[in-house]
Design a protein around this nucleic acid. Structure first.
Lengths: 138, 138
DNA sequence: CTTTGTACTTGCAAATTGCAAGTAAATATA
DNA sequence: TATATTTACTTGCAATTTGCAAGTACAAAG
């Protein structure tokens, strides 16, 4: 049970109590946009998260009900992490971070994705939420 | 010159390199939604930021071109911090954090603001961006 | 000319991060 | 069946960051 201390009753502050660090949202990015679902897959990302940090953040996300952990279907030595509806509700935050980062810094975002987000942000959010929902049922 | 290390070329990762901590977005919240613009005003927020952290984050935000610092009009011993267009572009991120936090945690968000954001998110974002833009010219 | 206001800076203990190595159970291979 | 590999962590420790309290510097007020 990784507890989170709520610094104030402000919703922004509370969101940051849970998500406000350099790693947590990268795990969720990997789940939503790269279809990742295992510890080993998260470790392979370009940012090279340390193993202890990853284990800690996964425990926080699980205890906050943002994702669930279950033994994988194919191997008993593997776990599958899945997004809950609360986790899927984070997609708009991730999308807003993509748009700001891509606008103000040099990044290598997929041009098709950027176009999709710029021309129909709400529709794109719904699309990725639907895809995440389908994946989380698998 | 507070430099930021870009961990990868991913736009989400880059946004988090700049904004990914527990305090930075609270400063921006105070500017956008509480009309705050001075060091002393930021210190008064409910979350009680330490003075050294505040000074550090303001320096990062200034060096990243998210806000500007200028001697206040009324007192020469005071500084006024103003949002740049790059800073105003962060409003959608803040709004998405408000909506997620208010939906999934017990907070005391202003019901009128919540209603406004839920019924017309894009319009509300534009409104607060316009208000911030007007204030930043004052 | 002393006190107050505003914006920091400094010093230090505590907490967090980051790196490397080690552990444990399940699975694959010889 | 014995050994090696895969997968998911845990542990130890140094380095960095945070958080708290006190101190500094300059302008403005009394």
């Amino acid at each position: 049970m990784k507890e989170i201390k709520q610094r104030s009753s402000c919703p922004i502050s509370t969101s940051l109590d849970v998500l406000g660090d350099k790693w947590t949202l990268l795990i969720l990015r990997d789940m939503v946009f790269a279809g990742k679902s295992t510890y080993g897959q998260f470790l392979q990302s370009a940012e090279k998260m340390a193993t202890n940090i990853l284990a800690d953040r996964l425990a926080v996300l699980e205890s906050q009900g943002i994702l669930t952990k279950a033994v994988a279907d194919d191997k008993k030595s593997k776990f599958t992490y899945r997004l809950t509806e609360k986790g899927i509700d984070i997609v708009p935050i991730i999308v807003s971070l993509i748009l700001w980062g891509a606008k103000h810094y040099l990044t290598d975002i997929n041009p098709a994705l950027l176009e999709e987000l710029q021309t129909g942000k709400d529709a794109a959010i719904e699309k990725y939420q639907r895809l995440a929902r389908e994946k989380s049922l698998a």
